[in-house]
Design a protein around this nucleic acid. Structure first.
Lengths: 122, 122, 122, 122
DNA sequence: GTGGTCTAGACCACG
DNA sequence: GTGGTCTAGACCACT
C-alpha cells in the first residue's frame, strides 16, 4: 500500500504508546514509571532515545521527575483530560481534512467507517 | 498542540495534492501534466524536487512518461479506482487504529465526528 | 518485474526492427526502403526520429542513400553477414556476462534455456 | 561494434553490482551495508547518487533502513530467492526474444553459446 | 555518524 | 523543449 504516511520516529512511537497507556488508564496518576534504562531494555532501543521520550513527556506535563527517585505520572488529572480532549480533536480534524483533500464524500466516509467499526480494529 | 504529525517533505505534499486532483477529477485520465520545469516554477520548488514527485507518481502507475513529450495521467481508470479505494481504506483504518490506541471509545469517536462534520473542514 | 533494462529509445527500437527484417530476409539487398515520411507515419513517430534511424543505418553501411531517389538496402552481402555475426556474438557474450555477474551457474543457465526454448519465444 | 546497449546510468550499475553480490552470497542477509557516505567514497560517486541506489534497493525489498543506524540486507530469504528466479527468467527470456527478433536459429544460438562457454566469461 | 530532504546548476538523450 | 542523470554542498531528524 501507499505510504504517504511515513514511518514515525521511534521516540514518538514510544511516546504515543505511553500516552495511550495513560489515556486508557493502564497507568495511574502518581505511578512511578520504569527507569530510562529499564525501558530502553524493554523496547530494545538506545538509552538516548528513551531519554528523549521522557524529556518530551515532561514537556507535556504528563510526567514529573523527582531527583534520585525516578519519573512519575502527573497527578494533574485536569491536564490529562485536556490533552485527551486536544488529542481527540486533532485526530478527528486531521482525518476529516485528509479525507476531504482526497475528494471523499461525507457519505463515503460514513459508509467506510461503519463497515470498519464492526471489523477488527487492526 | 502536540505535533505527533511532523511536517511532511515537500515532494510528498505536492504528490498528495496532485493525487487529490486526480481523485477529485480535476485532472482527467490522458491529460498532459505541466512539465517538470513549469510545475517547479508554479510551486516555487526546485526542478529536482518536482522530478521526484513525478517519479513517485509514476511508480504508483498514476502517470506515464513519454520521452521528450511530457508526463501524462494514466488512462487506466481501474488503477485509479483501486488507488482511491486503497486510500480510503487506509485512511479510515489508520484513523480508527489511532483512536483506539489512545483509548477513545466508539461513542466518543462518533460524537466528535458529528460535531466536526458540521463545522469547517479546516 | 525489475527493470534493470531500461526502455530503449524509440529510434533504436526501430533500427533493430529494420535490422531484424534485413537479417531475416524480409527485406532484400537493393530494395528501396520507404521514405522517412512514410515510415514516420507508419510507426507514428516524429520525422526527426525517423531521420535519425536512417542516419544510423547508413553509418552502419546497412543502407545507401541515392539523392532524390530514396534509401536503399546495401547490396554488400559480406557487410551484412559481418554485422549478423557481430550481432550474434555480442548478444551471446552480453547474455553470459550478465548471467555470471548475477551468480547463475552454467547449469542453471542451461536448464533455464532448455525450458524456455520449448515455450513461446514471447 | 554497434552500441545497441547504451551506457547505463551509474546508479543502476552500482545497484546491479550489489544485487549480484547478494545473489552470489558475498553479502549475507542481515549484514549491515557500508554507509551511504562510505560507499560514495569507495565508488567515487556523489553521496546523492549512492542514496538513490539504496533507495531503489529498498523499493525492491532487498534492503531495510534503520534510522540513524544504517542500511541492512533483508533477512527475507524468500524474497531474495524470488528475485533471483525472476531475474533468471527475465534475462533468459529477453535473450531468446532478442535472438529470435534478429532471426537467429535455435541451432546458431546453441553453437554460439557452446563456443563461448568454454572461453572466458568476459 | 546515519539516512533523508532540498537546492542550484550542469549536462545529456530524446523527439 | 522534454525528462533523466549527476554533482556539490547545505541542512535536518534520528540514534
Amino acid at each position: 500500500m501507499i505510504d504517504f504516511l511515513p514511518d514515525k520516529p521511534i521516540y514518538q512511537q514510544i511516546m504515543e504508546k505511553i500516552f495511550g497507556d495513560l489515556l486508557k488508564g493502564n497507568v495511574k496518576p502518581g505511578d512511578r514509571l520504569p527507569s530510562v534504562r529499564e525501558y530502553a531494555l524493554e523496547f530494545g532501543v538506545n538509552a538516548n532515545t528513551m531519554q528523549r521520550v521522557y524529556k518530551e513527556l515532561e514537556l507535556l506535563h504528563l510526567t514529573e521527575t523527582k531527583r534520585g527517585q525516578g519519573t512519575f505520572v502527573t497527578e494533574d488529572m485536569q491536564r490529562l483530560e485536556e490533552l485527551r480532549e486536544e488529542m481527540k480533536q486533532t485526530l478527528v480534524t486531521t482525518f476529516l481534512n485528509q479525507m476531504e483533500s482526497f475528494g471523499f464524500t461525507e457519505e463515503e466516509i460514513i459508509v467506510q467507517l461503519s463497515s470498519r467499526k464492526r471489523g477488527e480494529l487492526n
